[in-house]
Amino acid sequence: PQEEYKKRAKKALKKGDEDTAREALKRAGLSPDQAEEFIRRFL
Score class of each variant (00 low, 15 high):
1 P>G: 13
1 P>Q: 14
1 P>H: 14
1 P>Y: 14
1 P>W: 15
1 P>S: 14
1 P>I: 14
1 P>M: 15
1 P>N: 14
2 Q>D: 13
2 Q>E: 14
2 Q>G: 11
2 Q>L: 13
3 E>N: 09
3 E>D: 13
3 E>Q: 08
3 E>W: 10
3 E>G: 07
3 E>V: 07
3 E>Y: 08
3 E>T: 07
4 E>D: 14
4 E>W: 10
4 E>M: 09
4 E>A: 07
4 E>N: 09
5 Y>K: 03
5 Y>E: 13
5 Y>C: 10
5 Y>S: 07
6 K>I: 15
6 K>Q: 10
6 K>H: 08
6 K>G: 04
6 K>N: 05
6 K>L: 15
6 K>A: 07
6 K>R: 09
7 K>Y: 06
7 K>V: 07
7 K>L: 07
8 R>F: 10
8 R>T: 12
8 R>W: 09
8 R>S: 11
8 R>K: 14
8 R>V: 14
8 R>D: 11
8 R>I: 15
8 R>G: 06
9 A>R: 01
9 A>G: 02
9 A>W: 02
10 K>G: 06
10 K>S: 08
10 K>A: 12
10 K>W: 08
10 K>Y: 11
10 K>N: 07
10 K>D: 05
10 K>V: 15
10 K>H: 09
11 K>T: 12
11 K>N: 13
11 K>E: 15
11 K>H: 11
11 K>P: 01
11 K>S: 13
12 A>E: 03
12 A>F: 05
12 A>Y: 06
12 A>H: 05
12 A>N: 03
12 A>S: 06
12 A>Q: 03
12 A>M: 05
13 L>N: 01
13 L>C: 04
13 L>I: 05
13 L>T: 01
13 L>M: 05
13 L>V: 03
13 L>P: 01
13 L>Y: 02
13 L>H: 01
13 L>D: 01
14 K>W: 09
14 K>I: 14
14 K>L: 15
14 K>A: 14
14 K>V: 13
14 K>P: 01
14 K>R: 13
15 K>Y: 12
15 K>S: 13
15 K>W: 08
15 K>H: 13
15 K>L: 14
15 K>I: 13
15 K>P: 01
15 K>R: 13
16 G>E: 03
16 G>R: 05
16 G>Q: 05
16 G>P: 02
17 D>A: 04
17 D>W: 04
17 D>S: 04
17 D>L: 06
17 D>P: 02
17 D>E: 06
17 D>K: 05
17 D>V: 02
18 E>R: 12
18 E>P: 11
18 E>K: 14
18 E>A: 12
18 E>T: 14
18 E>N: 08
19 D>F: 12
19 D>G: 11
19 D>Q: 13
19 D>Y: 10
19 D>L: 11
19 D>K: 13
20 T>G: 14
20 T>Q: 10
20 T>P: 02
20 T>Y: 10
20 T>I: 07
20 T>W: 06
21 A>E: 00
21 A>Y: 02
21 A>S: 02
21 A>W: 02
21 A>F: 02
21 A>H: 00
22 R>Y: 07
22 R>M: 07
22 R>I: 05
22 R>W: 07
22 R>L: 07
22 R>V: 04
23 E>T: 07
23 E>A: 08
23 E>D: 11
23 E>S: 07
24 A>H: 15
24 A>T: 08
24 A>I: 15
24 A>E: 15
25 L>G: 00
25 L>R: 00
25 L>E: 00
25 L>V: 01
25 L>Q: 00
25 L>H: 00
25 L>S: 00
25 L>C: 00
26 K>E: 10
26 K>D: 08
26 K>V: 10
26 K>I: 12
26 K>P: 01
26 K>G: 09
26 K>S: 12
27 R>N: 13
27 R>S: 12
27 R>W: 08
28 A>F: 03
28 A>C: 05
28 A>G: 08
28 A>E: 02
28 A>K: 01
28 A>W: 03
29 G>D: 03
29 G>H: 03
29 G>F: 03
29 G>Y: 02
30 L>A: 02
30 L>S: 01
30 L>T: 01
30 L>Q: 02
30 L>D: 00
30 L>I: 04
30 L>Y: 10
31 S>Y: 04
31 S>P: 06
31 S>Q: 06
32 P>Q: 11
32 P>W: 11
32 P>T: 10
32 P>V: 11
32 P>M: 09
32 P>G: 08
32 P>R: 08
32 P>Y: 10
33 D>E: 14
33 D>M: 11
33 D>S: 11
33 D>Y: 08
33 D>Q: 13
33 D>H: 10
33 D>T: 12
33 D>N: 08
34 Q>S: 06
34 Q>K: 07
34 Q>C: 08
34 Q>A: 11
34 Q>M: 08
34 Q>Y: 05
34 Q>E: 14
34 Q>L: 07
35 A>R: 06
35 A>V: 14
35 A>L: 10
35 A>Y: 04
35 A>H: 02
35 A>E: 06
35 A>I: 15
35 A>K: 01
36 E>T: 06
36 E>I: 05
36 E>F: 04
36 E>A: 07
36 E>V: 04
37 E>R: 06
37 E>V: 05
37 E>N: 06
37 E>A: 10
38 F>Q: 02
38 F>R: 00
38 F>S: 01
38 F>P: 00
38 F>C: 06
39 I>D: 00
39 I>W: 01
39 I>P: 00
39 I>E: 01
39 I>T: 01
39 I>Q: 00
40 R>H: 11
40 R>A: 09
40 R>S: 09
40 R>T: 09
40 R>E: 11
40 R>P: 02
41 R>V: 08
41 R>Y: 09
41 R>T: 10
41 R>H: 12
41 R>E: 14
41 R>F: 08
42 F>K: 03
42 F>D: 03
42 F>R: 03
42 F>H: 08
42 F>E: 09
42 F>G: 04
43 L>N: 09
43 L>E: 08
43 L>F: 11
43 L>I: 09
43 L>D: 06
43 L>M: 10
43 L>T: 09
43 L>Y: 15
43 L>P: 06
